[in-house]
């Protein structure tokens, strides 16, 4: 430590290297970041504006021609508006239903002294743990028995199964952080259970409702296997359309357009999450499984 203070006038080689590293390391880091996350996105944008007639194949490093034909094709002939509407509708309904189902349970788990709380919390996590495809197939059979295969109701119920754990976990944290003294004060001033709920709980859990809602919404927007098993062929969402372009009828250009259609709203939601939502809700939804 003492040696460092004396080398102000004559920079030693070690000091110079350290200074250089201080510039080079962040630069390298930024480069890796761009290569890792932004280059895939840039390629997808390029593919989406590649002229299908000119094409883009090896050994060309860039497309041979650019046009918006694929965008036009997807919106005109794939009828992409229906899947977009379906996805949004199902995601909104899932969020609403999951919220209504979760609210009482979140209150009970967040505020009340219940025996076997940790067991119940683990049971609620079941849909996050069990293998997606295996459960989708058999939940699909159950929903089929209920006569809801290929209906909005069936798909929304199946999406709720994936959404409720997120919603519940975030809401439980929301209820847990409501300070007891405010509730006591409200009770002292004569507020009954209804008043306490409306005037104290609701405003205080509002942020967790918003973040739980966003997580449930995103989860439903990207849910593929459940829709694939239960919704198809009558109900198509954006992921199932994308799957058909990536798998059965492979088309890099159309796949790229559908990718961007699903990617942009998700990134906007991510920014909202990062900007407005407290880290504890984020941790509750994603962190400890």
């Amino acid at each position: 430590m003492q040696g460092n203070t004396n080398t102000k006038t004559v920079p030693s080689p070690a000091r110079l290297t350290r200074k250089l590293l201080r510039i080079l390391l962040p630069a390298a880091f930024i480069l890796i970041f761009f290569a890792w996350i932004l280059i895939p996105m840039a390629y997808t944008v390029l593919w989406s504006v590649t002229d299908p007639k000119a094409g883009w194949a090896y050994p060309n490093a860039l497309p041979l021609g650019y046009s918006l034909d694929t965008w036009e094709y997807v919106f005109k002939f794939v009828k992409i508006w229906d899947p977009i509407k379906n996805s949004l509708l199902i995601a909104l309904a899932t969020t609403a239903v999951a919220f209504l189902f979760s609210l009482p349970a979140a209150y009970a788990l967040g505020r009340l002294d219940l025996k076997g709380k940790s067991l119940i919390k683990n049971l609620i996590l079941l849909p996050m743990i069990l293998p997606g495809m295996a459960m989708a197939i058999y939940v699909g059979r159950v929903i089929n028995r209920m006569g809801l295969s290929g209906t909005y109701a069936g798909v929304i119920l199946a999406h709720c199964l994936g959404g409720i754990p997120y919603m519940l976990r975030v809401l439980i944290v929301g209820f847990e952080v409501v300070p007891q003294d405010i509730l006591d004060a409200a009770a002292n001033l004569g507020g009954g259970p209804g008043v306490r709920f409306r005037e104290v709980y609701l405003p205080m859990i509002a942020p967790s409702v918003v973040s739980g809602g966003i997580f449930t919404f995103i989860n439903s927007m990207e849910e593929f296997t459940m829709t694939f098993i239960i919704g198809l062929p009558t109900i198509k969402t954006i992921p199932t359309v994308l799957f058909s372009f990536l798998g059965e009828s492979y088309s890099a250009t159309r796949g790229a357009v559908v990718t961007l259609i699903l990617l942009v709203p998700n990134l906007i939601l991510l920014m909202i999450v990062e900007k407005c939502i407290k880290t504890e809700y984020m941790g509750a939804a994603l962190g400890k499984m």
Partner: peptide
């Protein structure tokens, strides 16, 4: 954290374009 919010299918589409011949 961006890829955390990117659905698996989209990740496939993104990576597919990166590892293609061109």
């Amino acid at each position: 954290k961006i890829p955390l919010f990117i659905p698996a299918l989209i990740a496939c589409s993104l990576m597919g374009n990166i590892i293609a011949y061109n």
